[in-house]
Design a protein around this nucleic acid. Structure first.
Lengths: 301, 301
DNA sequence: CTCCATCATTGCGATTAGCGCAATACAGTG
DNA sequence: CACTGTATTGCGCTAATCGCAATGATGGAG
């Protein structure tokens, strides 16, 4: 009977759907199922009736829902009261992909430093791919990076913004190959400049596989930022997140191909493992981000 | 942050002594120390000041004490409310040594059946030694037996009563060897009837070792109950818990040797492992026993 | 002053619990 | 009847937790 298990229960009780709940909790379906089983065994009462097709709360489940909400509430209040007593101190280690350093980080870090000036910050930059691994290993408290498709265990993500994946080409190449009048399938047969690995590469590979195409790769580079100069040099068509393009000094030297395949957008956000996320210094950063996110959402509507 | 960890914290906060707290929690000192460390890390604040010679609560520790007590209270209330909604049902498996079946069990079982008549009881009897093993293996919910000196991990005990270990001999033997006028050291040099294993055997072995004596074992039997007839037959001096002697049909046929070594008394009580003790059916039995125990204590005073 | 007892902590090996993956069971659908 | 969607279960693996033994530090006894 753990705070985390209570939270998991609340999600299931809210959604009444194990699969969706498991995704929301960043948990495999089996783990979620067994978590609920554990709770039910510990209480000696069933919390849900699984009706082969639907999930409903039992009477006991409803009582437990009240209890769980209150218990979590109490715990959070206590944590807040604790934070009020003493200013946070310690070290917060951040890891950010270059993409993220340009976009999200300044805002967040400024706000954090303003609120918790006693916390010493440690910022490391590197490839987005590495970020998740660092978080999993506990080397880093929070990574600010693109969210991978597949999430490891005990990792929490906080999506902050999305940015579309754009196909770009140098102006000269656009004219040479008459790129603007071609359809998506034709475009991806042109010479491509791709990252060796990473999310956008996987997205393209998925799309190619779905359409049974083999890419014509003119060059592979590491890192999204490096793609843009390569494209500028006319090596081929590149794929970059809009966010990266906007911050690039070459952004006016390349053209965006609007007649390109629609890949799923890049999602950028925070990434931390659930264990270190318990640390107050870390949780504060996370909650600050959530807060700013909520404000932004409100602002939009 | 687990209910159990909160309880552990409360014990430490109450006793302000890690060693004693660890014994009260049936935990090794190291495990207890690390449990507190975990809590402190999770909260990001120290709960105790370890002053090289004394342990004191910090300010945060006092707040946490309030929180923990309330959280446990809430949980217990919820469990009670749960129990109120539906009568307990299921199976409770008990294991009792013969000694215990005669003494403690009738009271407890009757009270339990009266309170929770829907629970199906399963009673197995056997050697006291085996009881703890069965509990550890999870084969049995609760054992009613003598408490072993060394307790395994994750096992909870509830001492209910103590009974002294008595040296007994057949009347004929008392006269033959003039037992009543001999001192303790001489007595244990006489032929002895001992259980092959078990607590009373270990107690005697300890005493012998301390006094650098080698026993003169006339016969070894299994089980305390069997000792009495053997003693009655004049095989030698036996050692039995008073409780066993009282219930024995031979109790008038043997004499108690008051001039014998004083061994630590037998402690009889409940034994369960902390995991199955979470099951409501099991916890109910345990709490019922605690309740009756408290009433008895009150009665005495 | 030295030796010893006490007490919290830490290193280490072993055990347990919790997770993800893949397979399974089962009901509704095209 | 194949197929999809959904919860569960078998299994291997990793991480958490425990007990034992050693450590370090401290105050009291001889």
């Amino acid at each position: 009977m753990d705070i985390r298990e209570l939270e998991i229960f609340l999600v299931v009780a809210d959604l009444l759907h194990f699969g969706r709940a498991s995704r929301q909790c960043n948990l495999s379906p089996s783990a979620l199922s067994r978590t609920i089983q554990r709770l039910e065994e510990e209480l000696g009462q069933a919390l849900f009736v699984r009706d082969k097709r639907s999930v409903q709360l039992t009477e006991v489940g409803r009582s437990f829902h009240d209890y769980a909400r209150k218990a979590i509430q109490d715990y959070r209040s206590f944590q807040v009261a604790l934070g009020g007593e003493r200013a946070l101190s310690g070290t917060l280690s951040l890891y950010a992909s270059i993409t993220a350093v340009y976009s999200l980080l300044p805002d967040l870090v400024e706000a954090y430093r303003h609120a918790y000036s006693d916390v010493q910050l440690e910022l490391r930059t590197g490839a987005a791919e590495e970020a998740v691994a660092q978080v999993e290993a506990g080397e880093i408290d929070i990574a600010v990076a693109a969210l991978p498709d597949r999430r490891g265990a005990r990792i929490d993500f906080l999506p902050i913004m999305t940015t579309p994946l754009l196909f770009i080409a140098g102006h000269q190449l656009v004219e040479e190959l008459d790129l603007l009048s071609r359809n998506a399938l034709e475009l991806v047969s042109m010479p491509l400049v791709l990252p060796q690995a990473g999310l956008s590469r996987r997205r393209l590979d998925q799309w190619l596989k779905k359409n049974r195409l083999v890419p014509n790769i003119s060059s592979e580079v590491s890192g999204n930022e490096a793609i843009i100069p390569m494209v500028h040099l006319g090596c081929g068509i590149g794929i970059v997140p809009q966010l990266v393009l906007e911050r690039s000094p070459f952004k006016d030297e390349v053209a965006v191909l609007s007649n390109a395949p629609q890949l799923d957008p890049y999602v950028v956000g925070l990434c931390s493992n659930q264990r270190t996320l318990q640390k107050p210094v870390v949780r504060a950063f996370w909650q600050l981000a959530e807060q700013r996110l909520a404000e932004t959402q409100l602002h939009k509507t």
